[in-house]
Amino acid sequence: MFQVDRSQNRLKQLGRTTFTEAGLREREHLQEWLATTPGALGEAIGEELLIIQKEFDGFDGTRERLDLLALDRSGQLVVIENKLDDSGRDVVWQALKYAAYCSSLKKAEIITIFQQYLDRGEGGDAASSICEFLQEDALDEVVLNEGNDQRIVFISANFRREVTATVLWLREHQIDARCVKVLPYLFGEDLFIDLQQVIPTPEAADYMIRMAEKDTEEKSAKGAQRWSHQMRYAFWEEVLEAFREAGLERWQNISPSRDHWLTSSIGVSGCILVLIFLRQEIRVELQLNRSEASENKWLFDQLAKDSEELAGKVGAELEWRRLDDKKVSIIQCKLPVQGYSKENWPEMIEWLKQHYKRMDAAFSERVASLAGQMKSGG
């Protein structure tokens, strides 16, 4: 890792160190960093994880503890094993045991495990946190820890050959195992940590994701998708057909999805209009999700000054969600409805079409103008 010296147009190499030399410990430091800042690991592996427990020892008949337990966006459990300067030879066997132990955990047990973790920390409700993370409307629609597809992430500064060879073999047999290299660097008195996924490489990971998506499509054609996914896909097909017939240009090249949302750009980076289809509600919402939280909050505050005027243009009550604890801010209108009753779909689609057009007319140019002011420093 190098520092750029702009004054001399040179690179200065940062000093490599070891966790041992820096006086750092696995549980007190590395594990705690990952638990409290899961985004660091998420950046390395290219996806978000929800940490639900650390030092988990809830295995019958054994006193073993896994380092970190997490959920991925599909609701699958992820076993995370941390080592410092060397992976050791037995870490794969250790993690495989933990994955096998966790394979039998039921939804209620996972929620209890997460709730215990929250109660020891900042508090909160496990069920609602899981729903928010998975972007699901209700927990009864969520499948957690399905089948035997538990995942494993190994973290260390150095991986022995027997570990990397075994991880590659596991991946060949459709077990999602990954190696993330964590390296400490010194710059004066400051310590820096670099996390990089080394197995699979990012290019290989993208290929595997595409192959998994292809496999999912094939299973969908055979009727293997979950009923809720089929319902969403069918609904979005009808919505998109109606939007195209209405001449809404931004939706001409959008494809239907199994997710409960579809998005459309308004021509401003990080700002999108979103259609949301839930079991008991549909929504149209403006999401302000630029890279800098301060920009989103500023845009929100400027728009909120004209909240009554904007509600009048939309012709519906608007819900203003600044979300001070998150990067994104949201402005939405919604309609309570029995969404999974197909006889309601024509009315729902008409409502989405009309309120999307009104939200677009009310907000898009205004947001673009405000974004232009930010860019020019106004």
Rank of each mutant, 00 (worst) to 15 (best):
D5N: 05
Q8L: 03
L11G: 00
F19D: 06
A22E: 15
L24G: 09
L34F: 14
G39L: 09
A40P: 04
I51A: 12
Q53H: 13
E55V: 05
D57S: 10
D60R: 12
L66D: 00
L69D: 04
L77E: 07
Q94M: 01
Q94N: 07
Q94R: 15
A95Q: 03
A100W: 11
C102T: 12
C102Q: 06
K107Y: 13
A108T: 04
E109H: 14
T112F: 08
F114N: 11
Q116T: 04
D119Q: 09
D125G: 01
S128F: 06
E132C: 02
D140E: 08
D140V: 01
E141S: 10
R151Q: 15
I152E: 09
I155C: 08
A157I: 03
N158K: 06
F159N: 06
R160I: 00
R161A: 11
A177G: 12
L183H: 03
Y185T: 07
F187H: 03
E189H: 12
I193D: 11
D194S: 05
D194F: 01
V198P: 07
E203F: 13
E203L: 12
M208D: 14
M211P: 03
E213K: 04
K214V: 03
K214S: 04
K219M: 12
K222R: 15
K222M: 14
Q225F: 15
R232G: 07
A234R: 12
A246G: 02
R250Q: 15
W251T: 00
I254V: 14
S257A: 15
S265C: 07
S265T: 13
S265R: 14
V274W: 02
Q280E: 15
V284P: 04
L286T: 04
L288V: 06
R290A: 02
S291I: 11
A293M: 06
S294M: 14
E295P: 06
W298H: 04
L299F: 08
L310E: 01
A316C: 12
E319N: 13
I331R: 14
K334D: 02
L335K: 15
Y340W: 14
M348G: 03
E350I: 00
R358L: 09
M359F: 11
V367C: 13
A368F: 13
L370T: 10
G372M: 13
G372I: 00
G372K: 14
M374S: 00
S376K: 09
